[in-house]
């Protein structure tokens, strides 16, 4: 599920594809943009008016496949790097995928790279057939040749250099057993630092709330939390949240402590240059 994993489903992808006839004719853009977000560079960048103008900037881009030439202009400008140019017309059982690739090093033409799917899994090898360095956009477009069966799967590549330094992280996660300790902040609250400046822990804060100090100011006065150099920038909201949690008060009714000048620590000598008017 896209909203949970970041991976679009097969059904979502299939809906984007042009008719089989159009697919056989030549390259076309696939816009893997499924969410209404305020963004329209794809439609304004298309010289062929193949992407419908957006009345509402939040519209999901809509491609007219017959107007699309597969030029890739939209893929180079898409801020979400969500546009891919697919070409299934070459014959010989292979097709090409043109994808945005903002990583270093850029692969060279003819280089064999790992073909990677939407989940980050290697699904085969691919040969780089074209590299547009994207001097202006700084979004290089890399075209790779893959078996036709993979043109709707492969969305990323991994070059040799990357493979060595980045083992499959998902695998690592599976290999590590659960730790023996049970995890519950409730029992470890003396290791949770709320006020970094004054070194006040969550346990101290919780003890004070239990004693009846239920405002940020009271806790500050007794514990010094928030009196340090950062003036509660980091801990203030955490203390308010803990008060709200323990008392059941809405967070909005837990008043923050007053803000005073200066907003950053300044030496006494700093002010000696001023003259009173």
């Amino acid at each position: 599920m896209l909203e949970k994993t970041g991976i679009a489903t097969r059904e979502q992808i299939e809906k984007l594809l042009p008719s089989p006839g159009r697919r056989a004719e030549g390259p076309y853009a696939v816009m893997e943009c499924f969410q209404k977000i305020p963004c329209n560079p794809c439609s304004t960048s298309c010289a062929f008016h193949a992407i419908l103008p957006m009345d509402d900037i939040n519209d999901i881009p809509s491609v007219t496949p017959d107007k699309c030439t597969g030029c890739g202009a939209c893929a180079a400008v898409c801020p979400g790097l969500a546009i891919f140019i697919i070409d299934e017309s070459k014959g010989g059982g292979t097709g090409t995928v043109t994808l945005p690739y903002e990583f270093r090093p850029l692969p060279g033409i003819g280089e064999t790279v790992k073909a990677v799917n939407r989940a980050g899994e290697v699904v085969g090898d691919a040969v780089v057939t074209r590299v547009l360095p994207g001097k202006k956009t700084k979004t290089p477009l890399v075209t790779i040749e893959v078996p036709l069966s993979l043109v709707h799967e492969v969305r990323f590549i991994r070059c040799e250099a990357h493979q060595e330094e980045d083992p499959s992280v998902a695998d690592t996660l599976r290999e590590i057993p659960a730790p023996p300790q049970t995890a519950d902040i409730g029992e470890q609250d003396d290791e949770v630092v709320i006020c970094r400046c004054e070194g006040v822990t969550l346990r101290e804060i919780r003890d004070l709330i239990r004693e009846g100090y239920t405002t940020v100011d009271e806790i500050k006065r007794i514990s010094r939390a928030g009196m340090g150099p950062c003036q509660a920038r980091t801990c203030g909201p955490l203390i308010a949240a803990e008060i709200a949690r323990m008392t059941g008060e809405p967070l909005g009714s837990v008043a923050p402590s007053a803000h005073r000048a200066p907003v950053k620590p300044l030496p006494i000598e700093f002010f000696l240059g001023g003259d009173t008017e």
């Binding site: 630092v193 400046c197 004054e198 070194g199 340090g228 150099p229 920038r233 980091t234």
Partner: peptide, 29 residues
């Protein structure tokens, strides 16, 4: 940290917190 003795490192990187206070040319904090 002067009270907890816990190690402190780079944290906010923009001068907001107090995690990176050091002695520089004899000047503390």
């Amino acid at each position: 940290h002067f009270k907890t003795k816990r190690p402190r490192g780079f944290y906010c990187a923009i001068g907001n917190c107090s995690s990176c206070l050091m002695v520089v040319n004899g000047q503390s904090n």
